[in-house]
């Protein structure tokens, strides 16, 4: 999954990114409102962590502008301001959640997981497709109850696919969400990893990972959507 952190405190941004990357996510950082807004509109992210006090504009304004622009990415606002009016304002302009500093990192993680769950209407905590189970919090992956060991990259791919279960996920989307690199030309890399993944997940069982010719991949119990 790919996250955007918009925070002007360089050190704080660095610490946040480090912690989030260690969870297996890709993290991009912007240090002011303008850069953050641009990144969020140009690229797609699965969640945005937005600080309230930014040097050029308030985070609340950025949030409002993103929503007006039609960007529906879940947004979690971070700030040292804890007055009730501020929380209400933040949520009312379109933020999905709000955390006051200083916060426990574990809580930030839990809330991000909660935001990521929202992409699915049923919002399960642990994701299931057929007899495949993926627990985002513990990073456990099981098929038919039997645990499967995945590399971090494989896990990241799996998370993207299962969160969009039933939908076609393009190679570009996968690249964005699993690697730091944004460029094209890495389809090959994907195919290699996907074939490893297939072997671990699908080997000897009903196939769940399907290739959609010319479009990408899809995780589902049947070959046809």
């Amino acid at each position: 999954m790919r996250l955007l952190v918009i925070e002007d405190d360089v050190k704080a941004a660095r610490l946040l990114s480090k912690g989030l990357r260690e969870e297996g996510w890709i993290v991009h950082v912007a240090h002011d409102a303008a850069a953050g807004y641009e990144k969020a509109t140009v690229s797609s992210y699965d969640a945005v962590i937005l600080d309230w006090l930014l040097p050029d504009r308030e985070g609340v304004e950025v949030c409002r502008d993103l929503r007006r622009r039609g960007v529906h990415t879940p947004i979690l606002m971070l700030t040292a301001r804890d007055a009730v009016e501020d929380r209400v304002t933040g949520l009312n302009v379109g933020a999905d959640d709000y955390l006051t500093k200083p916060f426990a990192f574990a809580e930030l993680l839990a809330r991000i997981h909660a935001l990521l769950r929202r992409a699915d209407i049923t919002r399960p905590v642990v994701l299931h497709v057929g007899d495949l189970m993926l627990d985002p919090v513990s990073h456990e992956v099981k098929r038919g109850g039997a645990p499967i060991r995945l590399t971090p990259t494989e896990y990241a791919l799996m998370e993207v696919l299962i969160r969009r279960a039933g939908q076609v996920v393009s190679r570009a989307d996968l690249v964005e969400r699993v690697w730091e690199i944004d460029r094209d030309g890495f389809e090959n890399l994907i195919d290699v990893h996907m074939s490893h993944l297939r072997r671990k997940i699908d080997g000897g069982r009903a196939p769940l990972i399907h290739t959609v010719r010319g479009s990408g991949f899809r995780l589902g119990t049947t070959a046809e959507p």
Binding site: A12, A80, F105
Partner: peptide
């Protein structure tokens, strides 16, 4: 309000630093 922000920022960094480091 300013003072509370100024106090919370370094505390927040401190906390994040220590928590993230201790996770692994």
């Amino acid at each position: 309000a300013d003072a509370s922000h100024e106090l919370r920022s370094p505390l927040s960094r401190l906390r994040a630093e220590l928590e993230v480091t201790l996770r692994r």
